[in-house]
Amino acid sequence: MEKKKMYAVEATNLVKTFGKEHAVDGVDLKIPKGIVYGFLGPNGAGKTTTIRMLATLLKPNNGHATVMGYDLVEEADDVRQKISLTGQFASVDEELSGRENLIFIGRLVGYTRKEAKQRADELLAAFQLTDASKRQVKKYSGGMRRRIDIAASIVTSPELLFLDEPTTGLDPRSRNQVWDIVRALVKQGTTVFLTTQYLEEADQLADLIGVIDHGKLIAEGTSKELKASVGAGSLIVNFDNEVELQRASTILEEQLGEKADKDLKDYSLTLPIKEHDKAAVAIGALANQNVKIKEFSMAQPSLDEVFLTLTGKLPDQETDGVVNE
């Protein structure tokens, strides 16, 4: 019964409505096997709803999809054999200990009691949770929580792992640990479908990024391609007074060939830049002409800027909550 297909996920015109709200509004996806697909978008864009449909938790109102070669609706049980889901919220039982949770899942996927215990201990060791194995999950830190969530998803090796905002709310160290885990999983051949609100995360992990807004896929490409459409980021320079600011503005606009955004309240200038080298040269030009700079900084392109470029407006958060139904 093994179906050989190139794509882990193949979806055409997926639609999910909640009442009048079009949470997902005609999404097409073609995700090759063995990659990390990053689904990038603001709160309420339809990320969670899409993942919940692909993980067989929600039935699409329209459209068609196969996951690991099986039809999402007709062959839901076959799909469930191939996937694992780590939801945005608790995907383990907080009242139980970490070890009990893993044994519990192990039993549910069909291990004997002994096998389930052994598997739980292996996973706890690999995820550095052995010391906390007997503690209730609700007493875990955010990072430990995420690790046990992911461990529970790989009690048996899924061919496709869904991670819904795996690092939202984590400190940088825990976030890096989660990233390392994702990289390790992909090395073993698992396809990972993750959603994120952070461009940096998609940049770090994803081979292919889809940008979603208002239930529609508005751009897709590699991180390089997406960034090229936005530019490398922006240069921000602060001054002590308006005179210096005006002088600098002329010089920088000439050097970078971009229009400067002036803020006369804190005497700061913001210019978009295409390449980092050019920014360095421009700052040098200011020094050459004795313009007194208070401070300067570089800002990475943010998700907001990607949206600004792609949609011409900032992501709005109004629909927040609708997708979490």
């Binding site: 549910l108 996927v109 069909g110 550095q128 090796s157 390790a184």
Partner: peptide, 28 residues
């Protein structure tokens, strides 16, 4: 990167066993 190797190790060769029957799942 010791941790990564262990995660990779525990990740290998863990095909799903036969899924549990109705009784077993309920008991769990």
């Amino acid at each position: 990167m010791n941790k990564n190797t262990t995660i990779e190790e525990v990740f290998q060769n863990h095909e799903r066993p036969k899924k549990p029957g109705a009784l077993n799942a309920s008991a769990t």
